[in-house]
Design a protein around this nucleic acid. Structure first.
Length: 509
RNA sequence: GGAGCGUUCGUCUAACGGUUAGGACGCCAGGUUUUCAUCCUGGUAAUACGGGUUCGAUUCCCGUACGCUCUACCA
C-alpha cells in the first residue's frame, strides 16, 4: 500500500492551456514532488475529430516555461509508454472484451441518427436501464442477430452495463465521501465505433497500467466518477483504484461560471499560459508569458487560487510550494480569477528577482521596440533602478527607454505655461557648466553632487528648486515619471544630459 | 427537468464549537518621494436564509434559496 506516489496530468491536445489546466498540472506536480513521487504527462488524443496540430507541443512548451517538467511524457518517454492514447489504441480493446465477457458491458449497434431520434422522441432520454431494451444492442437482440451483425462488421460501440439499485461511492480527498445511485447513471460508451476508447475507459485502463496512485482532475468530472469507479471494480478491483481528488474550478471574475477564453478577450486579460496560435482560425490568443508575466509569479498566483498553507504568506518559490503543499488545504469552492491581484503577484516577483535574470527576460521587449542595448551591464544597472515601478515585463520599456535613447515625445505642455526667460537662462547655464566639466575630463558625477551643484545654481539665479525640478525631469524623460532626476543624470551622463536640455530648450523657445 | 458539487469583506482567503471574524488584492485618506511608482500609516467592507444540536455556532445536522458542473461514439 506504500507504493511510490505517481500522478498524471492528462490533457487532450485541442488548444491552448488555460489557467485551470495549468493549475491542475501544478497541483499534480506539487503533490508528486512533496511526496517524492513521479509526475507523468499523458496525452488524451482519442478524439480524432478534435485533434489540433501543435497543441501537444504547446502543452510541453507551457510545462517547460512553468518549470513543471514531467518525469515521463511523450517527449521524455518512460517505462509505461507510449504516453499518447492514440498510440495505445490496441490495449483498450481487451479490457472492453473482458467487460463483455463478464457481462458488465454490451455491444450497441444504434447509429448516431437512431440516438438523435430517440432523444427527440423521449424527453430526458438516457441510455440506461430504462431504455436500453428499446435500443439495438446485444442485450435486446438475440444472440444470432448479434453474431450476424458482428460478423458483417456492422459499426458498433461497447457500452458499460450499469447495474441497478446500487450505491456507488468514492472517497474524494478534497470532498470526502461522494455517493451516486446507479439508477441515475447511464450506460456510457466505452469503446467507440472507430475502435478508440472514450475517456471513461481510457482513463481507468491507463491509470492502472501506469500505476497511478492519485488521480486529480477538475470538478467537472465528478458526475462521471461513478462510471470510473464501476470500471475499476469490474476490471482491476477497487483496492487498486487511485485516490481521487476533484479540484475546484477557476471562475470568471464577473458573474459566475467557468473561466473561458472569451472572458479573457472580453475583459482584456490572458487566459492561456502562453500565446496560442490556432491553425484552424488562424488567430493568436495572448498568453500570460507574452503579456509579461514571469513563470515564478504565474505559478505562485495559480497555487494561491484554491490553496493556502494557513499562514499569511503569499509569495512562494516553487520549492516552498512543494514543501508546504497538502491536499487537505485545497478548497472545495471555485475561485474567481482576479487579474489585478495576478499583476500584483508579478510585481512582487519582479522586485524580488535578480537584475541579471530580469535583464534576460526584458531584453526581447527592447528588441521588439527597436531599442538597441549596447552594454549588457548598463541594462542590468537600469533594471535595478526602475524595477520597483514595474508590474509586467513590458513596463520596463515605458519606465526605462529614456535611459537608452532620448525621449521623442516631450510633455512641454506641463511646463510651457510657467516658462520664462529666467528659466531658459538657468538651463543654458546648467548646460554650459556640464559642458565645461566634460572639457575637463568628467563624464558623469554622483547624483548627490549633481543635486548640490544644481541647487547652488538655483540659488544663484534666485529661483526655487521646485520650479526647476519638474522641467528638468521632463527634459530628461519626456514626462512626469521615472526615478530621481539626478540619478538619471548620473546614469545617462553629462553629454546626453546637455543634448536633452538643448533639445527641450528649442521646443520651449 | 434530473444528478452531483458548492456558498466568510467587491475578489483571493484565515479562524481545535468560545476571536473586537484575521491577512492579502482593490478602493479611499494621510505620510515619504520637489514627478510617477515603490514604501509606510490608517480607513472601507463579509459569515446567503430559516430551523435545530449546544451553556455557546462561521464552524456540526436538516431544510430553503442561489450558483456552478455534468446530463455526446468531447474531454
Amino acid at each position: 500500500m506504500d507504493a511510490k506516489v505517481r500522478v498524471r496530468f492528462a490533457p487532450s491536445p485541442t488548444g491552448g492551456l488555460h489557467l485551470g489546466g495549468v493549475r491542475t498540472v501544478l497541483f499534480n506536480y506539487l503533490f508528486a514532488k512533496h511526496n517524492n513521487g513521479e509526475f507523468i504527462l499523458r496525452i488524451e488524443d482519442t478524439d480524432q475529430t478534435r485533434f489540433v496540430p501543435g497543441a501537444e507541443q504547446y502543452i510541453q512548451d507551457t510545462l517547460a516555461w512553468c518549470g513543471l517538467t514531467p518525469d515521463e511524457s511523450p517527449l521524455h518517454g518512460g517505462p509505461y509508454g507510449p504516453y499518447r492514447q492514440s498510440e495505445r489504441k490496441a490495449m483498450y480493446k481487451q479490457y472492453a472484451d473482458k467487460l463483455i465477457a463478464q457481462g458488465n458491458a454490451y455491444y450497441a449497434f444504434d447509429t448516431p441518427e437512431d440516438l438523435d431520434n430517440k432523444r427527440k422522441e423521449v424527453p430526458n432520454f438516457q441510455y440506461s436501464r430504462a431504455h436500453r431494451m428499446d435500443m439495438k444492442n446485444s442485450l435486446s437482440l438475440s444472440k444470432e442477430e448479434v453474431d450476424e451483425l458482428l460478423k458483417n462488421n456492422t459499426p458498433h460501440v461497447i457500452r458499460i452495463k450499469v447495474p441497478e439499485n446500487e450505491e456507488v461511492s468514492l472517497e474524494d480527498v478534497i470532498r470526502g465521501q461522494v455517493s451516486f445511485d446507479t439508477n441515475m447513471v447511464d450506460d456510457k460508451v466505452l469503446l467507440k465505433a472507430d475502435g478508440m476508447p472514450t475517456y471513461h475507459l481510457a482513463v481507468v485502463v491507463d491509470d492502472h497500467l501506469m500505476k497511478i496512485t492519485h488521480a486529480f482532475r477538475g470538478e467537472e468530472w465528478l458526475p462521471s466518477a461513478p462510471v470510473h469507479v464501476l470500471l475499476w471494480k469490474y476490471l482491476f478491483g477497487l483496492e487498486q483504484m487511485p485516490k481521487w481528488a476533484h479540484l475546484p474550478l477557476i471562475l470568471k471574475p464577473d458573474g459566475n461560471g467557468k473561466l473561458s477564453k472569451r472572458d479573457g478577450e472580453r475583459l482584456g486579460f490572458p487566459v492561456f499560459a502562453m500565446d496560442w496560435f490556432d491553425p484552424n482560425t488562424n488567430t493568436t490568443t495572448i498568453g500570460f508569458k507574452e503579456r509579461g508575466f514571469v513563470p515564478e509569479a504565474f505559478v505562485n498566483l495559480l497555487a494561491m487560487l484554491g490553496w493556502n498553507d494557513g499562514t499569511d504568506k503569499e509569495i512562494y518559490t516553487i520549492e516552498e510550494l512543494i514543501a508546504g503543499f497538502s491536499l487537505d488545504r485545497v478548497h472545495k469552492g471555485g475561485a474567481k480569477f482576479d487579474y489585478e491581484k495576478a499583476k500584483w503577484f508579478n510585481g512582487e516577483w519582479i522586485k524580488k528577482m535578480e537584475n541579471e535574470k530580469l535583464a534576460a527576460l526584458v531584453q526581447p521587449y527592447f528588441d521588439k521596440e527597436g531599442i538597441e542595448i549596447h552594454d549588457k551591464a548598463y541594462l542590468v544597472k537600469v533594471i535595478g533602478l526602475v524595477k520597483e515601478r514595474c508590474q509586467l515585463l513590458p513596463d520596463f520599456i515605458t519606465q526605462s527607454s529614456f535611459y537608452f535613447k532620448a525621449p521623442t515625445q516631450i510633455d512641454t505642455a506641463s511646463v510651457a505655461p510657467k516658462w520664462d526667460a529666467k528659466k531658459t537662462e538657468f538651463f543654458t547655464e546648467l548646460a554650459a557648466i556640464y559642458n565645461s566639466k566634460i572639457e575637463s575630463g568628467v563624464i558623469t558625477a554622483p547624483a548627490i553632487d549633481l543635486e548640490a551643484a544644481f541647487k547652488d545654481l538655483v540659488a544663484k539665479h534666485e529661483l526655487k528648486p521646485g520650479e526647476l525640478m519638474l522641467p528638468f525631469r521632463i527634459m530628461l524623460v519626456g514626462g512626469k515619471f521615472g526615478p530621481g532626476v539626478f540619478e538619471i543624470v548620473e546614469t545617462i551622463e553629462l553629454k546626453e544630459t546637455i543634448a536633452r536640455i538643448q533639445y527641450s530648450l528649442q521646443l520651449l523657445s
